[in-house]
Every structure is written in structure tokens, then in C-alpha cells.
């Protein structure tokens, strides 16, 4: 409504009033881009959760064995940050998990991307690896943990091997999809401009596949983060997953909850970071 009163900036920021973009739209139900963020309700839900937590535990309504009191959690976070958990600093628990994920993803990508490219470009690789990839793809990496423990025990190598395997197949599939998404006219154009096969690969196919590869990296990060926590739950003495598991054995529910929150926050941070990197590194995404 052009002559309507302007809503206040606060109402717009809270997503409760139409902003300058959604105001132009008349069709709102069904057009996802026309739906206001409703950030205000988000704040309400977070506050409600915290208040519920506080009331339920402070009143003794919930046994702290099942869910810790809010103030106890804050105390414990301070203690964990200062003294660590089981002789290992909290940061080290977090870092070792992140480090495992990063190594797994890097190994998976280094092997998976060239393999995926080969599968998209060369019939021998396509035929040879296709059954293997299609067979392993639906197997959740967690199902491989027992086998990997049998093979490699529970040391560092076993964990990174599992994570590399988990990201390997994601990266193969992403790279292969990237190669097959190249528009033929671009390849034709490059050949017509005198490019050799190698030049077409490096100058056309590779940049064209980058958006897909990046999506693959993001997925691999997410999957590996979930997998590392699960692997640490099964067998580890360091890492955020093992911290939860050990704390559980001592009925330290507060540490369990803290660990869960940290896992969620880091998973979220990884996603945000990857999106920022993507916007920076592949600004042409979706513009071809």
C-alpha cells in the first residue's frame, strides 16, 4: 500500500512488518520470497526455551540427572574452559574433532575430485567405478565403523580413514555432477577458440564444476561432523563426542548437554563459513 504508514525500523528488523521488498508483493501465500523472516518470533522461542529450562530446573520439577540446571551449566562451562575435561582442555576436545573432520574432508576431496572428473570424462573410469560408487553411496558411513575398528583398531588413523571414506563418495558424486553440468556450447566454444583437451579440462570444465564441488564440500563437512561425533562416541578418549560419552558414564548430564550444544554450534558455524567462502570464491554461481 503506497499511502500506508511506514512500519518502524524495529518492526521490519524483527520481521513482523513488511520490508521494502515484501511490501511490493501482493501474492504472499505460496511465494516463499515474500514471507517475512519473523525474527521476533524466533527471539520469543529462544527466550521461552531458556525460561522453561530455568523454571523447570530451579523449581526441582526435573531431576538434574535428566537435565541440568541452567546456572549449573554456566558454572560448568567456566570450569571446563579453565580446567578442561579429564586432563584435556575443552579447546583441545573441540579442536581434535574439527581437525579430524578437516583432514577427512581434505583427503576425500583430493582423491574424490579427480576420480569424479575421470568418471565424467572417460568411459573406462565411468564404467569401472560406477558400480562401486553406486553400491557404497547408500551405505551410511556409521555402518562401516565396526569393520574399520576390526581393520585399523581405534587409533587416529582409523577415524580419519572413516571420515575420508565418508567424504570421498560425496566428492566423487559432486565432481561428476559438476562435469556433466557443463553446457556443451561452452565446451564447443573453447574448442573453436583453439583450446586443447587439457585446456578445455582446466579452463572450462574445472571452473564450471566448481559450484558443484563446493556444494559437495559443504555436504561433506556436514556429514563428517556428524560422523566424527558418532565415531568418538564409539571409541575415543579425546574429542567432543568422547567427552559426552565419558561424561554420561559419570552421570555428568550438564557436560553432556554442553557437548551437544557445542556440536550444534560448530556444525552451524561450519555451514555459515562455507557459505561465506562460496560467495567469495564463486561469485558466478548460478549465473551461467
Amino acid at each position: 500500500m503506497a499511502n500506508g504508514k511506514q512500519p518502524s525500523r524495529w518492526m521490519i528488523w524483527l520481521g513482523l512488518a513488511d520490508n521494502s521488498f515484501t511490501r511490493q508483493k501482493t501474492v504472499k501465500f505460496g511465494d516463499a520470497s515474500a514471507v517475512n523472516s519473523g525474527r521476533g518470533y524466533g527471539i520469543i522461542s529462544v527466550l521461552a526455551f531458556i525460561i522453561l529450562w530455568w523454571v523447570a530446573t530451579a523449581s526441582g520439577w526435573i531431576n538434574p540427572i535428566y537435565w541440568p540446571a541452567l546456572d549449573a551449566v554456566f558454572d560448568r562451562v567456566g570450569k571446563l574452559a579453565n580446567e578442561g575435561f579429564r586432563n584435556v582442555a575443552l579447546w583441545d576436545h573441540i579442536w581434535i574433532s574439527v581437525y579430524r573432520v578437516l583432514s577427512g574432508v581434505v583427503y576425500g576431496a583430493v582423491i574424490g575430485i579427480p576420480l569424479g572428473f575421470a568418471m565424467g570424462l572417460w568411459s573406462v573410469a565411468k564404467g569401472f567405478f560406477d558400480p562401486i560408487v553406486e553400491f557404497i553411496r547408500p551405505i551410511p558411513p556409521l555402518a562401516l565403523i565396526p569393520l574399520i575398528i576390526l581393520w585399523f583398531g581405534i587409533d587416529e588413523f582409523a577415524k580419519i580413514f572413516l571420515l575420508a571414506l565418508a567424504s570421498l563418495f560425496i566428492m566423487i558424486i559432486a565432481a561428476r555432477a559438476g562435469v556433466s553440468s557443463v553446457r556443451v556450447s561452452k565446451v564447443h566454444a573453447a574448442y573453436s577458440l583453439g583450446a586443447t583437451k587439457l585446456q578445455v579440462l582446466i579452463r572450462v570444465v574445472l571452473p564450471n564444476a566448481l559450484p558443484e564441488i563446493f556444494t559437495g564440500l559443504r555436504t561433506a563437512m556436514g556429514v563428517c561432523w556428524g560422523t566424527v561425533v558418532a565415531a568418538e562416541l564409539v571409541a575415543a578418549d579425546r574429542g567432543i563426542g568422547s567427552m559426552i560419552m565419558i561424561a554420561k558414564n559419570f552421570l555428568n548430564t550438564d557436560i553432556v548437554v554442553i557437548g551437544i550444544v557445542i556440536i550444534g554450534l560448530i556444525g552451524f558455524a561450519i555451514e555459515i563459513l562455507m557459505r561465506m567462502l562460496e560467495r567469495k570464491l564463486i561469485p558466478w554461481r548460478g549465473k551461467g
Binding site: 556450447s185 566454444a189 574448442y191 573453436s192 579452463r203 558466478w284 549465473k287 551461467g288
Partner: peptide
């Protein structure tokens, strides 16, 4: 016998390298 630099092509659209 195949594409070559002596025959340049101008496509209808979408053949530029967007990166």
C-alpha cells in the same frame, strides 16, 4: 575433421565463460 581455431563460432547465447 573437428573444431578448430580457423572456424570461429558465435552462439545464440550462453556460451560465454561466466567465471
Amino acid at each position: 575433421k573437428g573444431p578448430g581455431a580457423e572456424r570461429g563460432m558465435v552462439f545464440q547465447q550462453g556460451a560465454l565463460f561466466e567465471w
